[in-house]
Computed example of a mutant assay.
Amino acid sequence: MSLAFANLGETKVIVDFTGKEDVKRHLQDMGFVKGESVKLLSENESGMILLVKGVRVAINKGLASKIMVA
């Protein structure tokens, strides 16, 4: 499932990415790598605040939809 559909407070594990190579590389540069845990801290209609590797990261839902989690 896509990270964009995660519920508030849930912790998920990244399993894959979709999209073009430059988008995947951008996500990896921000700390989103396969096998890493991601926790949804907050969200609104335009974006999400996530906890990745102990750092809070804000992304829009379009980018979150490119991150596949389990």
Rank of each mutant, 00 (worst) to 15 (best):
E36C: 05
F5C: 00
S65I: 05
G31E: 09
G54Q: 06
L3K: 04
K12L: 11
E43S: 09
R56M: 02
K66H: 15
A6R: 03
K12T: 08
F32M: 10
S42F: 12
A70Q: 12
M68Q: 14
M48Q: 04
K12H: 11
M1T: 10
N7V: 00
I49M: 10
V55F: 03
D29W: 10
N44L: 00
T11V: 01
G54C: 07
T18D: 15
G62Y: 06
K61F: 08
L63N: 09
K34W: 02
E36T: 07
A64E: 05
S46A: 11
L50M: 09
K53C: 06
V38E: 01
K39M: 07
V23G: 11
K61Q: 09
F5N: 07
N7R: 02
I59Y: 04
E21L: 15
K34N: 08
A70S: 11
K53R: 11
K34I: 13
S65E: 11
M48E: 01
K53F: 02
G31P: 08
Q28K: 13
K53L: 07
V33D: 12
L63S: 12
Q28T: 11
Q28W: 06
F17N: 10
M48G: 01
V13Q: 14
A58Y: 11
D22E: 10
S37H: 07
V57G: 07
G62H: 05
K66W: 07
N44M: 02
G9K: 05
V55M: 05
D22P: 04
K34S: 04
K66S: 14
G19T: 14
K34E: 11
G54V: 07
A6Q: 01
D22F: 14
S42P: 00
M68C: 09
L41V: 05
D16A: 15
N7P: 00
L27P: 10
K20W: 10
S46Q: 10
S42T: 06
F5Q: 03
I67R: 03
L41H: 01
S37G: 02
L40W: 02
M30K: 13
N44W: 03
A4I: 00
R25I: 14
K61S: 05
M30S: 10
R25D: 14
E36A: 11
S37V: 00
D22Q: 11
G19Q: 13
F32K: 09
V23C: 11
D16L: 06
A4N: 00
L51G: 00
V38C: 04
A58C: 08
E45I: 03
G47K: 06
I14S: 05
V23P: 04
I67P: 04
G62C: 01
G35I: 12
M1P: 08
D22T: 12
A6E: 01
G47Y: 04
E45R: 06
S2V: 05
I59H: 04
D16K: 11
L51Q: 01
V13P: 04
M30D: 06
F32C: 09
S42W: 14
K20T: 15
A4T: 00
D29G: 15
L8F: 03
N60T: 15
S2G: 08
V55C: 02
L27M: 15
E36S: 09
V38P: 02
D22W: 12
S2Q: 12
I14D: 03
S65K: 13
D29Y: 14
S42Y: 14
T18Y: 12
